[in-house]
Computed example of a mutant assay.
Amino acid sequence: MSICLITGSHPRHLFLARELIRTGTVCAWIMEEREAFVPEPPPGLAPDLAGLFNHHFAERDRIEQLVFTRAGGPDKTPDFVVGTSGLNDPETIAFARNSGPQLVVSYGCSKLSEGFLRTVGCRFWNVHGGLSPDYRGVATHFWPSYFLEPQMTGVTLHETTDFLDSGALILTTSAPMTRGDSLHRLAARNIEHFAEVFCRSVRGLDFASLPDGKPQKKYGKAFLSGDWRPEHLRLIYEVHDDRIVDHVLDGKLTGRVPRLMSVLD
């Protein structure tokens, strides 16, 4: 067993943890307890916009509970649990180092410090819910649909660096769209698809000779938390009735085709 897994605590994070643990390659699991999955709307929103906000996040919760908990939770409990302020504490770093990993895989946790990366003494890969370099940063399963190219929804596995989602690429995946997919169902489908592809590759990895990633040759948009506003929800729900995937499949919208890659083949 060669992977130290570091995840958040939301349903999608626990789903990937379960799938990776089932490959028999995980030697330790660190879980960071994240913020509430269904946030309260910001104060001062107009009633109709507050309603859209509540609908959006309640629907995300409904879909993730439906998709990611239907087969049960992880087969084991985390070996080490921390809050967001403790992920880079010396105790957490020591636990990761003492588990003796050849690879650390992170998903949905806070940024790992330079000291964490330097001290553990192995390779670090990060799972990013967006296609890098086109969609880096925050809410990157939201923005492709907002920009009317849901086919650019995907997941990236990259080498972990100090720069936001900019490390050399290990694997990119994008799930085929299915008629009737809402924004959140498409996001969940992409996480399911990535887990299937990555876990299949993990079983055949030579951890003593891990492949190098492919450097990102262009610089796409890095979305920050402040870029998203509740007003963006109007286009998704009021203009397109959360049917943007169907509009693409019907040929009413066109756009880019994702360029996918893997160094794990």
Rank of each mutant, 00 (worst) to 15 (best):
I30Q: 04
T77Y: 05
V82A: 06
W29H: 12
L183F: 14
V120L: 08
D61I: 05
A188E: 11
I21M: 10
A46S: 02
M1T: 14
E196H: 12
I6F: 11
G100H: 09
I21E: 03
C27P: 00
L164H: 05
G83W: 10
Y135L: 04
T92E: 00
S201G: 12
C199K: 08
E64V: 13
G121I: 07
Y219D: 13
T178F: 09
S99M: 10
Y237P: 00
P41Y: 12
P74D: 00
D165C: 06
H232K: 10
S182K: 09
N54T: 13
R12I: 15
Q102C: 06
T156A: 08
E35N: 02
N98M: 13
H158V: 00
R185Y: 11
R229P: 01
G100M: 11
V127N: 03
K218W: 03
S132L: 03
L171D: 02
T254K: 12
S182H: 11
V127M: 02
F163G: 09
S209N: 14
N88C: 14
R34C: 09
A28T: 14
Y219G: 05
T69V: 06
D265P: 15
I236M: 14
G180V: 06
L131W: 04
P258G: 07
F37N: 07
L169H: 01
L233N: 12
G167D: 10
R136N: 00
F53W: 03
T84C: 06
W125D: 02
L103E: 10
F124G: 01
R189K: 11
